[in-house]
Amino acid sequence: MSLDKATVRKISELARIEVPESDLEPLAQELSAIIGWIEQLAEVDTDNVAPMRSVMPITHAWRADEVTDGGMQEAITQNAPSAHDGYFVVPKVVE
């Protein structure tokens, strides 16, 4: 299936990546080519095949409910583009 400009615009919104209007058409063609190539998977019979999420069997590990780490506000905010008093500074979201 081929992706049109509107679909690419919608994906870029979902992915939170700004795409200039002039790039939408070339990107639509590029992504369509990749998706078209991927669609050969439809040939594979996967009836009654369970999806594989991980090659490692994930066993739920139990541990004591104890604090093992923490108290490092400064280390955590040291790379923030903007931080104040141990907090991340973000734009106002709620009026």
Binding site: I11, I34, L41, A50, P51
Partner: peptide, 26 residues
């Protein structure tokens, strides 16, 4: 990121992502 967003988006998840996970098992 955009391909990934697309194959996980509503309406396409089963056709692409779930299908790929099944082929992965094959």
């Amino acid at each position: 990121v955009m391909i990934g967003t697309y194959v996980l988006s509503a309406g396409y998840y089963d056709a692409y992502y779930l299908k790929a996970q099944k082929v992965r098992r094959r």
